[in-house]
Design a protein around this nucleic acid. Structure first.
Lengths: 219, 219
DNA sequence: GCGTAAGGTTACTCAGCGGTAGATAAGGCG
DNA sequence: CGCCTTATCTACCGCTGAGTAACCTTACGC
């Protein structure tokens, strides 16, 4: 059993299935994030993964299946990152604050995951849109809950300027877009980013709760 | 539900080049918006346009060229719609208000244009990203100008919670995402949408200007 | 040892699509 | 009417890339 540690470097060692699957998924996320779903080729993915193409088909199925596996894994990671960052027993604004920080922390650490989730999965129709839409819906729902609870706590009635879901969508959208913007302006910290949003949104929201309303003047 | 957009039974009349180009561009925008750049086939575009494939190549070049033509035309339309909607001699908040209304008006009227610009062009790398990035940069610059001028008017100093460009990016992003959200919730009017944003952003921004700042508490 | 299943590969098929060559019809102009 | 120009079509080519068949090879239980 005195095996040579340096056998021919080409010959891949035999590894358990779970390890290979992880390698493949990592490679797939990287390639999908670089080229997008359609331009990504299974050949390149297999190459990056250091594995031959049939392995992918054998372990994770066809291209669509592979992509869905990627989305699910990354969506799960993101969701978990945000949820473990939130402390459920603090006021709504602090929950939002922690959630935002966790979110930007995730984006910073897993850029590629974020790219795949946000930029790629949305454009490719079909079964993928649903997956990502579910994630975003979860986010909107979560935020909407915070917003509405904060509003109700202060007795904010339903009015034309206020729609919990609409505001939540805008907030989530703003957070996402700011994340995108961040990818090209990485010279600010995640805390600063979250702080910008809080100052924009929460202050404005507070005013709404207080009954202050912006209305167009006559110009 | 998919009505027949097929050409009329009689074989194509000879039409001036400008007309054909318009037909082709319209078809291309429709098809690109439905399937995305890669999944869109030149055959389908030519079919929808009521024209044979070589015409496209002869008039507008290869697939990439065609797509760039689409982006440029739609970006131009959007920009013009927003700019003609803005009245330059009113206060910043009213300018923003009018700009937002024009923007949502455009999205409502030219859904497909918006889809191509926002969802498709971003994901396809290469020469396209630049085109769209330029458009967004123009928008951010425009909004940033409004925000900064409004801030300066009130003597707002540069501080950690305030970055004109960052806020503008967040606002533009929020507006875009809300537009996307709108595509699936078309039961609100463009005015209401713009009103939500104004109430979120402008109120919050006013607070900032007034020196009020949100900061995390100890939880 | 030795059979067998799981890990792994090479080398192929085949469809779809971008792009083009070459034929055809339609007008304008003498 | 004949002739040229230009608009337009039919029919094809070649490549790229998804997916697969068939084969090899190591580990390990008995």
């Amino acid at each position: 059993m005195t095996e040579d540690v340096r056998r021919s470097p080409e010959r891949a060692k035999r590894l358990p299935r779970a390890v290979r699957e992880k390698q493949i998924l990592d490679a797939a996320v990287a390639v999908f994030s670089r080229h997008g779903y359609h331009s990504a080729s299974m050949d390149e993915i297999s190459d990056v993964a250091g594995v031959s193409k049939p392995m992918i088909y054998s372990y994770l199925g066809a291209k669509e299946d592979l992509f869905i596996h990627c989305i699910r894994r990354e969506a799960g990671r993101l969701l978990q990152a945000v949820q473990t960052g939130i402390k459920p027993d603090v006021p709504p604004d602090m929950q939002l604050w922690h959630g935002l920080r966790s979110f930007y922390g995730f984006v910073a650490e897993y850029r590629e995951s974020w790219t795949v989730l946000h930029r790629q999965a949305l454009t490719v129709g079909g079964p993928f849109a649903g997956e990502v839409d579910a994630l975003r819906s979860k986010a909107i729902e979560l935020v909407s809950g915070l917003v509405v609870s904060a509003g109700a706590r202060k007795g904010l009635a339903e009015q034309a300027e206020f729609s919990g879901e609409g505001l939540a969508a805008a907030l989530v959208g703003a957070a996402e877009s700011l994340a995108d913007w961040w990818l090209d302006h990485s010279d600010v910290s995640d805390g600063v980013l979250a702080s910008w949003l809080m100052n924009l949104i929460w202050l404005g929201f507070n005013d709404l709760v207080e009954g202050e309303v912006w209305r167009p003047t006559e110009s």
